[in-house]
Design a protein around this nucleic acid. Structure first.
Lengths: 231, 231
DNA sequence: TAGATTGTTAATCGATTAACAATC
DNA sequence: TAGATTGTTAATCGATTAACAATC
C-alpha cells in the first residue's frame, strides 16, 4: 500500500496564495473593460505590486503567459479561479447576525465569487424568523443540520467576543474546518482547522502606529520653521 | 543645518507591528481577569504565537520583563499602548454608511481603543440627517471641514468599489494620510499615504484554497476505502 | 529578423525559531 | 544558592527583487 504519489499539486507559498484573489480582482476589472490581453506590468500595476513579484507568483501556478505578448485575460482568470477553487461553489454559514453579520449577509462580493450563504444563525431567539438578505435567521442549534444538509465547509463567526470560542468549538464538532473570525478575540482550534481573523480594531491600530511615526518623524526633521514665529 | 539625529525611535519590523495589537488584546483580557503577571509562554499562548516570537517582538520595544519572573501585565500593556500610539486619541471619519459603514459606526471596539468616530459621511442626500450610532450622517462635501475641525488623520472607506478611488483622492487632498479601505478594489495613493485594505471576499478565497487542498490531499491519501464498495 | 515580454535564476532581505547566557 | 524566565544570538527559512536568458 506504500504508494508514493508525486502530484503536479505543488505547494504554493502562503504569501502568493494571499495575493491571488487580488490578481483575480484586477483581471475581473480588465475583463469588464473588455481588455483581452495584458502584460505582467499592467496587471501588477492594477494589483498594486511590482511586476517581478507578479511573475514569480504566477510561475507557481504554471506557464500561462506568452513571451513577447503577455497574458490572455480570460485564460489567466480561469486558471487562477481554478487554482483557488472558485470554479466550485462554496456553501457558507454565518453565525451572529448583528450589525456586522447583517452586512456580511448582504455583501454581494461573496455570492458573486462562488460563495453561497446557506444559513444565518443567531443565539437570540427573538430574532429567529427575521428575514435578512432573503434568508430566515435560524437557531444556532440548527448548525449541525445545516452543515450536513448543505455540505458546509466554511463558517463565519460574527458574534460578540465572549461567544466566539464556543461557537467555534461547535463548528469544529459538526465538521467545519475553515473559519473566518470577525469576533475581536483569538480562538483556538485543533490541528487541521484553519482560522483567519479579520480584526477591525487591529487594522486601525496598525495605521495609528504609522500615523504616529509620520508625525514624530516630521517633528524630528525640523518642521520647526512653522513654529518659529507663530506667536 | 546638517544635524544627524539618532533616536531611540528604532524602526520596528512590520510583522511585529501587526502583532502588537494582538498582544495588547491578550493583555487586556488578562487585566480583566485580574492577572498581575504573566510569562512569555502564557502571553504567547493567549495570543496564538510561540514564545520565542513573542519575546523577539517585545525585544524591539525594550526590556520590559523581569528575568525569572515574567511581565507585569499593566506595565507591558501601557508600554505597548504607548508604542502603537494608543495613549492618544485618534479622530476617525467614516465615508459610506451602507450596511458595513453602519456596522463600523456601531463597533464598540473602535471607541474602546482610542479611536473616536467624529463624522459619518455619505454621498446619498436622502440619508443626510439620519442618526447612526449617535452621529448625524453628513454630506461627503463636508469632508474637508470635518478633517480640519477635528484634526482627523485616519479615514475609513466603506463605499461601493466604484466610489472608492475618488473618495480616497479627496481624503488625500484634505490631508488624510492613513486610510482603511473596505471597498473591494485597489486604490492608489501618493507616496507618504498609508492604505490598509480589508477584503472580505479575499479572506474567504484564501480559506477556500486551503479547504480545497484539504479535500484533495485527503483524496490522494487513499480515503478510497470509503469508495471501495459503494455501489 | 527585431522587439517585446515571460519565466527563472540568484542574490538580498526580512522573519522565524531554537538554544542559551544573562540575571532576577 | 537553585530555579525560573527573559533577552539575545545565530542558524534557518521563506519572501522579495533585479537581471536576463528563453522564446514568442
Amino acid at each position: 500500500m506504500e504508494s508514493v504519489i508525486t502530484v503536479s499539486n505543488t505547494r504554493i507559498p502562503e504569501a502568493t496564495v494571499a495575493r491571488l484573489p487580488v490578481y483575480l480582482r484586477a483581471l475581473n476589472a480588465m475583463s469588464d473593460a473588455a481588455t483581452t490581453t495584458c502584460s505582467s506590468l499592467e496587471l501588477a500595476t492594477a494589483a498594486g505590486v511590482n511586476s517581478a513579484k507578479l511573475r514569480k507568483d504566477l510561475s507557481h501556478l504554471g506557464s500561462y503567459g506568452t513571451r513577447g505578448v503577455g497574458y490572455d485575460v480570460q485564460y489567466l482568470r480561469y486558471q487562477i479561479s481554478r487554482e483557488i477553487g472558485l470554479t466550485q461553489d462554496w456553501p457558507v454559514v454565518v453565525v451572529g447576525i448583528g450589525n456586522l453579520g447583517h452586512a456580511l449577509a448582504n455583501y454581494s462580493g461573496f455570492s458573486s465569487r462562488g460563495f453561497r450563504t446557506v444559513a444565518l444563525l443567531d443565539a437570540d431567539r427573538s430574532r429567529h424568523g427575521e428575514v435578512v438578505a432573503g434568508l430566515e435567521i435560524r437557531s444556532f442549534e440548527d448548525l449541525g443540520e445545516v452543515v450536513t444538509e448543505h455540505g458546509v465547509g466554511i463558517g463565519v463567526i460574527a458574534t460578540p467576543a465572549v461567544a466566539a470560542q464556543s461557537v467555534c468549538d461547535r463548528m469544529v464538532e459538526v465538521g467545519i474546518r475553515s473559519i473566518l473570525n470577525f469576533a475581536p478575540t483569538i480562538i483556538s482550534v485543533p490541528e487541521g482547522v484553519d482560522v483567519r481573523r479579520v480584526d477591525l480594531a487591529s487594522e486601525l491600530q496598525i495605521l495609528a502606529y504609522h500615523e504616529q511615526r509620520k508625525n514624530t518623524d516630521q517633528r524630528l526633521r525640523g518642521v520647526d520653521e512653522l513654529t518659529e514665529d507663530a506667536g
